[in-house]
Write a protein that binds this DNA or RNA. Structure first.
Length: 565
RNA sequence: UGGGGUGUGGCCAAGCGGUAAGGCACGGGACUCUGACUCCCGGAUCCGCAGGUUCGAAUCCUGCCACCCCAGCCA
């Protein structure tokens, strides 16, 4: 029984509970995550990783990380490294069970030979085009290959010569002999080994034949003793083949396998206003729509991490979206909610003015500086306080002043008062504009009797705005992000267009800001809430002590802005 | 005219014959030195549609409809 998820309920947990009740697999639970090292992993993979890992954890089972590296021409060490880093960051632990499907190439070769000896696999000389033609179509059955009935001796000989490099790429394949008339195309004598003279990132030049996924994957699961092999829906049609391979392994090569794995499929994750396929993400990177796999706008784990999202928030999100079999698209708002909820209790409050408007407090003495105490985490005494300097010249948010305010506006406007967070109440006395009519400076007066915590004025103002001393504030570049795509479904395009035509031209906005000097005391991994604005994180690549760069992780909810847009 | 899969409020998602959980979003209100947070309140007479079985169905049966996946020597 699971320890920590009594309320969780999904069809996979139901299957596991049932299997346990029935005593299957001697009560073992063993899952795995099998990435192909051919790209960066994204939040959709996080769903799969965390699902597999949490099942193992909650049921006191095991979780393997196994790279499915059967196709050397697509795979690289760089991706192995990035995937390991990303999964570690997510918190999934594979302990000492990091495997590569290529670790078992020798065993797999032996298994293939046993299939041949059992008359269940044959070497086929048909060209790729011919194989396709012989396969038939969705509505018509296929035709048997003319090589289907070669003798075991010939097949064994030919297969070993394939291994020895005697044949050109594409000239011969090993096929499972199943059923060319099956309604399921995967069962029409699937190719299980192909000739490929390519350098493998782990086995080097040892092999010039490589197994296909449908042969390799189920056998690897069986070798590792995986009990529940979870994958996404598009593999549903591969399941009969998965079972065929496992059944044969159990029958012909029992000493190589540890059990009888079962495959279960669930819907992959889609999120509104973004894309999740490796191919599309690659295009965004390669065609320069983003600045790399770790661009903070990308749904990759590397992108989320660089943006400042926490692994806890990602895990919570994956927890809340559920696991089911219906194709679905989760609202980006849920991810944002999970991020805010996580950061709300952790991120220290700092004042940062994103779009500065200068304010001169005319009755504040020229060289007076007053250090005011502000809570790091209001409502949490343990988080302590920090000091913010108040001086004659400060900056407030441009958007916190309106010359001609609408009803119910309780920020600053001519003749009106507002409280500076943690400081005094000020009153706008004069508005200074440039030649174009743009407001460039405000002249205000402050009320000395209204100091935060010691207010004896009896004044009640609704508005509280953030501010930063012009002299003491630190200059910083702030990057504000919007979704990468304008449409909820990026693939929803006009005739002749593709998803890149839906890219949001405002997905990145760069602002020159000014933040409280207190941020200097924190280490650079700290996440802050810039009061009334959002959560921010120092860009791990571009930020430095002399050149602060903050990424907005997510904005705060803004019911006022929403109401008035 | 093939095979596989899915349809529960705007978006996810429980439910497995006993009379529609929860979350997000949304709307209303309270609170507030963050218009944030928090806290209340609101909503499917109905579960793709149509029949049927049953005292009783989203849950069983039948027939439709819609959408998704499959014809790589990719995974």
């Amino acid at each position: 029984m699971p320890e920590s998820n009594e309320e969780k309920s999904n069809f996979i947990l139901a299957i596991i509970n049932k299997d346990l009740d029935e005593g299957k697999n001697q009560g073992r639970i063993h899952t795995r995550f099998p990435p192909e090292p051919s790209g960066y992993i994204h939040i959709g993979h996080a769903k799969a990783i965390l699902l597999n890992y949490s099942i193992a954890r909650d049921y006191k089972g095991k979780f393997n990380l196994r790279f499915d590296d059967t196709n050397p021409i697509k795979e690289e060490q760089e991706f192995v490294d990035s995937i390991i880093r990303d999964i570690q960051w997510l918190g999934a632990e594979w302990e000492d069970r990091l495997f590569f499907t290529s670790d078992y190439f020798d065993t797999k070769y032996e298994f293939a030979c046993r299939l041949i000896k059992a008359g269940r696999a044959y070497v086929c000389d048909l060209s790729p085009d011919e194989i396709r033609a012989y396969r038939g179509t969705l509505t018509e059955p296929g035709i048997d290959s003319p090589y289907r009935n070669r003798s075991v001796e010939d097949n064994l000989d030919l297969f070993s010569r394939m291994k020895n490099g005697e044949f050109l790429d594409g000239s011969k394949v090993l096929r499972a002999k199943i059923d060319m008339a099956s309604g399921n195309l995967n069962m029409r004598d699937p190719v299980i080994y192909r000739v490929l003279h390519a350098h493998h990132h782990r086995t080097g030049d040892k092999w010039c034949i490589y197994p296909m996924y449908d042969f390799d994957h189920p056998f690897s699961d069986a070798i590792e003793g995986i009990t529940h092999s979870l994958c996404s829906l598009e593999f549903t049609d591969n399941r009969p083949l998965y079972d065929w391979i496992v059944d044969n392994a159990l029958e012909l090569f029992p000493e190589a396998v540890k059990g009888r794995p079962r495959q279960y499929e669930f819907a992959r994750l889609n999120i509104t206003n973004t894309v999740m396929s490796k191919r599309k993400l690659r295009r965004l990177v390669e065609e320069g729509f983003v600045q790399g796999w770790d661009d903070p706008r990308m749904p990759t784990i590397a992108g989320l991490r660089r943006r400042g999202v926490t692994p806890e928030a990602v895990a919570d999100f994956c927890d809340r979206i559920g696991v089911a079999r219906s194709t679905s698209t989760v609202d980006m708002a849920l991810l944002e909610h999970c991020i805010r909820e996580d950061l709300n209790t952790k991120a220290h409050r700092i004042m940062g003015v994103l779009e500065p408007l200068k304010v001169v407090i005319t009755n504040w003495p020229e060289d007076r500086v007053e250090w005011l105490e502000l809570d790091n985490l209001p409502g949490n005494e343990d988080a302590g306080r920090h000091l913010a300097p108040m001086a004659r010249e400060i900056y407030i948010e441009e958007g916190d002043f309106l010359e001609d305010p609408p009803k119910k506006y309780h920020r600053l406007s001519p003749g009106k008062e507002v409280r500076l967070k943690g400081a005094y109440i000020i009153k706008c006395e004069e508005v200074i504009k440039d030649s174009t009519g743009k407001v460039v400076e405000l002249r205000c007066t402050y009320d000395p009797n209204t100091k935060s915590g010691e207010d004896s004025s009896g004044k009640k103002v609704r508005g509280v705005i953030h501010w930063v001393s012009a002299e003491h504030g630190l200059r910083a570049t702030v990057r504000i992000y919007e979704t990468l795509f304008l449409n909820e479904n990026p693939d929803d395009t006009e005739e002749g267009q593709d998803f890149t035509d839906n890219i949001n031209p405002h997905s990145l906005e760069v602002l020159n800001c000014i933040v409280e000097p207190a941020v200097e005391k924190y280490d650079r991994q700290s996440r802050f809430q810039f009061i009334r604005k959002g959560y921010f994180y120092q860009d791990p690549k571009d930020s430095s002590k002399d050149n602060l760069v903050y990424n907005q992780i997510v904005g705060l909810r803004d019911s006022w802005g929403k109401k008035n847009k």
